[in-house]
């Protein structure tokens, strides 16, 4: 099944690329839409000159820093809020109030508070990606089977053991669902926080912005392709980790 899927996906991508290449070759689309070969050449140039490494490094540093903080704080707080009713009741209203705000709107405020630095970018990435993980973890803990908890308590598990050995593994499928959404948002925010504001420093968003300013659409497409590849690879890594950790969970994504 999976092999067949991959084959079809590969064929579809190739067909789209050929179509695009053909349209560009016969000049049926405007030249600013570039063509796959030109984009690949631009990508190769970026790789060869080593320019891409600094951009990608800077972008990945920001997004992964934010994502790791989300894993630690989001999952930790989510478990506490789900397990202890008091903590959950305390946090629920404020979470519900902040959740619907598009967090990107906070970017101008953070920029004034922390300057146009990595702190601002990592903070906005964290703020955006925190909520899906937190909410998924909290709801996951709340929907745990009470029988499992009783059984563990009956066998003399301490409070800490209960959290670590029963609640955490039991919620893991839900946690990964939340993390997957968060990971996607991490990359979206990485791009957005780099493209809003001044165009200095390194990062894939800056690369796009600078290419935009000089009208080099081939570099823009190349940078978009790099972002797409990164997003895809990290999603696959997350799914791999998930299937390693959750070998007992039949319902695999």
């Amino acid at each position: 099944m999976d092999k067949k899927f991959q084959k079809i996906a590969a064929i579809e991508i190739i067909v789209v690329m050929l179509l695009w290449e053909g349209l560009a070759y016969f000049q049926l689309i405007p030249t600013y839409l570039s063509s796959p070969t030109i984009i690949l050449a631009a990508m190769w140039d970026l790789i060869k000159s080593g320019e891409i490494i600094s951009h990608m490094g800077a972008s990945l540093y920001r997004s992964m820093f934010g994502f790791v903080v989300v894993i630690i704080i989001g999952v930790g707080l989510g478990i506490l809020a789900g397990y202890y009713k008091k903590i959950g009741n305390f946090f629920d209203p404020i979470i519900n109030a902040i959740n619907p705000i598009p967090k990107i709107a906070l970017l101008p405020i953070l920029m004034v508070w922390f300057g146009m630095t990595d702190t601002t970018r990592i903070l906005i990435i964290f703020l955006t990606a925190f909520f899906p993980t937190f909410v998924a973890t909290r709801d996951g803990v709340r929907s745990m089977k009470q029988v499992h908890l009783w059984a563990a308590e009956n066998m003399g598990a301490s409070q800490l053991q209960l959290l670590y050995k029963v609640v955490f593994p039991g919620t893991l499928p839900k946690i990964f669902d939340g993390l997957r959404v968060s990971l996607g948002l991490t990359f979206v925010m990485m791009f957005s926080s780099e493209i809003i504001g001044a165009s200095n420093g390194a990062g894939l968003g800056f690369l796009i912005l600078n290419a935009d300013l000089v009208g080099r659409t081939d570099i823009m497409f190349a940078a978009v392709a790099f972002i797409a590849v990164l997003g895809f690879i990290f999603d696959r890594i997350l799914l791999k980790v998930r299937s390693k950790l959750l070998w007992w969970d039949l319902n695999q994504a």
């Binding site: 899927f5 996607g184 972002i227 797409a228 997003g231 990290f234």
Partner: peptide, 20 residues
């Protein structure tokens, strides 16, 4: 036909296409 496109397109940050 559509499912592979969805599973490839889903993790890609589509916002990056905006400047284009």
């Amino acid at each position: 036909l559509v499912q592979p496109m969805l599973s490839i397109g889903y993790p890609i940050p589509r916002v990056a296409l905006y400047p284009i």
